Lab assay of single mutants.
Amino acid sequence: NITNLCPFDEVFNATRFASVYAWNRKRISNCVADYSVLYNLAPFFTFKCYGVSPTKLNDLCFTNVYADSFVIRGDEVRQIAPGQTGNIADYNYKLPDDFTGCVIAWNSNKLDSKVSGNYNYLYRLFRKSNLKPFERDISTEIYQAGNKPCNGVAGFNCYFPLRSYSFRPTYGVGHQPYRVVVLSFELLHAPATVCGPKKST
């Protein structure tokens, strides 16, 4: 009989979030998941669920729940959905087409922007091929755009693959930082360890 609440607040209220290319994953298990708490945590810009209804979450049980978190800019949030393409979905964080879970995003301009520009958040701009779903690539190998090998040196047709967002508070919403948490629900042929409040007794 599990009584402890799932530590969603640790994920959502973390002081620092990860850069999207090096997104963070927390496995959540053996706890009571009260998803209604999430609705009250922040004024969400996005709370979209796929393959599951957000209002039914509190009635369900899962084997595992994974919470992935990272920062992107406002106009990239739409890429965090099944079947999307674009720089983020292709080279940084890719959801599977049959994704079961929820994408939660909110504006973090007050936390993640600086007047002089916050350069701490990076994204991958160049990659030889698209990522597979939930693949994480943290390599910093020089990207070869031409025929000549780069031998690890940046220059003509040889690019450092990561680029930094420079978040400034005066930017338009599309270029402001957004914190994203992706909850993916895993149903294996194994005992369910993460249940809503109704199912945990």
Results as ranks from 00 to 15, higher is better:
84 Q>M: 14
89 A>F: 03
153 V>P: 05
36 S>M: 09
187 L>K: 14
17 F>P: 05
163 R>S: 15
116 S>D: 13
166 S>C: 04
74 G>Y: 03
72 I>L: 10
66 Y>N: 11
86 G>R: 03
146 G>I: 02
195 C>E: 08
16 R>E: 15
121 Y>Q: 10
72 I>S: 02
183 L>M: 08
19 S>M: 03
49 C>K: 02
63 T>E: 13
144 Q>T: 07
82 P>D: 01
174 G>E: 06
88 I>R: 02
13 N>A: 09
119 Y>R: 10
12 F>Y: 06
87 N>H: 15
16 R>T: 15
183 L>N: 01
193 T>C: 10
63 T>N: 13
18 A>H: 11
26 K>M: 12
151 N>D: 12
148 K>C: 07
170 T>K: 06
30 N>Q: 09
124 R>I: 00
42 A>S: 11
182 V>D: 00
116 S>H: 12
136 R>A: 05
1 N>G: 13
95 L>N: 01
91 Y>H: 07
47 F>Q: 10
174 G>Q: 06
125 L>A: 10
39 Y>T: 14
93 Y>E: 00
197 P>V: 15
142 I>P: 06
187 L>Q: 14
133 P>C: 04
196 G>N: 12
101 G>I: 02
180 V>A: 03
136 R>H: 08
59 D>F: 10
188 L>R: 14
200 S>K: 14
86 G>L: 01
53 S>A: 12
153 V>H: 14
45 F>R: 15
101 G>L: 03
179 R>A: 00
92 N>H: 03
149 P>L: 10
165 Y>V: 00
140 T>S: 12
141 E>D: 14
99 F>W: 12
50 Y>E: 01
63 T>Q: 11
158 C>W: 03
150 C>A: 00
164 S>V: 04
119 Y>V: 07
71 V>F: 01
194 V>D: 11
24 N>L: 06
139 S>Q: 09
192 A>M: 14
118 N>C: 03
15 T>W: 06
192 A>Y: 15
179 R>W: 00
105 A>M: 06
4 N>D: 13
41 L>W: 14
123 Y>H: 11
159 Y>C: 00
59 D>K: 12
38 L>F: 13
13 N>L: 12
168 R>H: 03
17 F>Y: 10
133 P>D: 05
49 C>L: 04
193 T>R: 14
105 A>R: 05
35 Y>S: 10
71 V>L: 05
95 L>P: 01
194 V>E: 12
196 G>R: 11
186 E>Q: 13
85 T>W: 09
119 Y>E: 10
57 L>A: 08
41 L>S: 14
90 D>P: 02
160 F>G: 08
126 F>N: 04
55 T>R: 13
67 A>M: 11
1 N>K: 12
166 S>D: 01
189 H>M: 11
12 F>Q: 05
107 N>D: 01
123 Y>I: 11
199 K>I: 13
3 T>I: 09
46 T>H: 15
26 K>I: 12
51 G>P: 05
109 N>C: 05
45 F>Q: 15
145 A>C: 05
12 F>N: 04
73 R>V: 00
49 C>A: 03
39 Y>H: 13
87 N>P: 12
149 P>V: 08
52 V>I: 14
99 F>C: 02
174 G>N: 07
82 P>T: 04
190 A>T: 13
111 L>N: 08
95 L>K: 03
90 D>T: 09
89 A>H: 05
155 G>C: 04
159 Y>G: 00
14 A>N: 10
91 Y>C: 05
60 L>K: 10
182 V>P: 00
114 K>N: 10
119 Y>G: 09
141 E>F: 08
97 D>S: 12
73 R>N: 06
131 L>N: 03
92 N>L: 01
4 N>R: 14
153 V>D: 10
54 P>F: 15
60 L>Q: 12
78 R>D: 08
56 K>P: 08
73 R>E: 04
26 K>Y: 09
99 F>K: 02
172 G>R: 02
173 V>S: 10
123 Y>K: 15
93 Y>G: 00
34 D>S: 09
88 I>V: 09
98 D>Y: 09
128 K>V: 09
28 I>Q: 04
55 T>L: 13
143 Y>M: 06
118 N>F: 04
96 P>Y: 02
140 T>N: 12
167 F>Q: 00
92 N>M: 03
32 V>Y: 12
24 N>H: 13
87 N>E: 07
151 N>Y: 11
50 Y>Q: 03
68 D>A: 04
14 A>S: 10
189 H>E: 15
150 C>R: 01
198 K>I: 13
169 P>H: 05
51 G>L: 05
112 D>N: 02
17 F>H: 03
17 F>D: 02
133 P>H: 05
120 N>Q: 14
141 E>G: 11
58 N>K: 13
164 S>G: 06
69 S>D: 04
165 Y>W: 02
8 F>D: 04
177 P>V: 01
58 N>A: 13
104 I>P: 00
52 V>S: 06
21 Y>V: 07
100 T>F: 15
197 P>F: 15
110 K>D: 10
48 K>L: 08
74 G>Q: 04
178 Y>H: 12
108 S>V: 04
69 S>I: 04
53 S>W: 08
27 R>D: 09
4 N>Q: 14
94 K>Y: 03
179 R>L: 00
121 Y>S: 05
99 F>G: 00
119 Y>T: 09
33 A>P: 12
30 N>W: 08
80 I>E: 00
16 R>P: 10
187 L>H: 12
109 N>H: 06
170 T>D: 02
93 Y>K: 02
135 E>K: 05
149 P>H: 11
85 T>P: 07
169 P>Y: 05
86 G>W: 02
3 T>A: 11
163 R>K: 15
187 L>I: 13
91 Y>A: 06
127 R>Y: 02
54 P>E: 14
173 V>I: 15
73 R>M: 06
9 D>H: 13
90 D>N: 15
10 E>W: 08
46 T>P: 07
31 C>T: 06
169 P>I: 04
199 K>C: 10
124 R>K: 03
83 G>C: 09
195 C>Y: 08
184 S>F: 09
9 D>T: 12
166 S>M: 05
108 S>D: 00
57 L>Q: 08
42 A>I: 13
34 D>Q: 09
60 L>C: 08
33 A>F: 15
42 A>G: 15
42 A>W: 12
1 N>Q: 12
9 D>V: 11
186 E>G: 10
97 D>T: 13
107 N>L: 02
185 F>L: 09
162 L>A: 03
150 C>G: 00
55 T>A: 14
155 G>I: 03
44 F>S: 15
174 G>D: 07
117 G>Y: 03
197 P>L: 15
164 S>W: 06
123 Y>D: 01
92 N>G: 04
30 N>F: 09
89 A>Y: 04
135 E>N: 06
28 I>K: 03
173 V>H: 12
46 T>N: 12
42 A>E: 11
163 R>E: 14
137 D>W: 04
91 Y>M: 09
102 C>Q: 04
58 N>Q: 13
9 D>G: 13
193 T>L: 12
141 E>W: 07
47 F>P: 08
92 N>E: 00
98 D>T: 11
101 G>N: 01
59 D>Q: 14
23 W>H: 04
3 T>W: 10
145 A>W: 02
157 N>I: 02
168 R>S: 01
56 K>R: 14
26 K>E: 08
187 L>P: 09
32 V>H: 11
176 Q>W: 03
185 F>N: 05
186 E>L: 06
72 I>T: 05
160 F>W: 12
112 D>V: 03
26 K>T: 14
196 G>L: 11
59 D>R: 12
192 A>P: 15
40 N>M: 10
176 Q>G: 01
195 C>R: 08
179 R>N: 00
132 K>N: 12
50 Y>D: 00
35 Y>W: 15
132 K>W: 08
114 K>P: 03
50 Y>K: 03
156 F>I: 08
46 T>D: 10
195 C>I: 08
68 D>G: 03
166 S>G: 15
155 G>W: 05
143 Y>A: 02
53 S>P: 11
9 D>W: 11
26 K>A: 09
176 Q>A: 02
81 A>T: 05
200 S>V: 15
94 K>L: 02
63 T>W: 09
73 R>S: 07
108 S>E: 01
73 R>Y: 00
83 G>H: 12
132 K>H: 12
105 A>V: 08
197 P>T: 15
54 P>T: 12
173 V>F: 13
107 N>I: 02
94 K>W: 00
161 P>T: 04
52 V>R: 06
19 S>L: 02
45 F>L: 15
113 S>G: 05
152 G>A: 10
95 L>V: 12
52 V>E: 06
66 Y>H: 08
129 S>Q: 14
70 F>V: 00
57 L>G: 09
18 A>K: 08
152 G>D: 11
83 G>A: 09
183 L>G: 01
15 T>R: 12
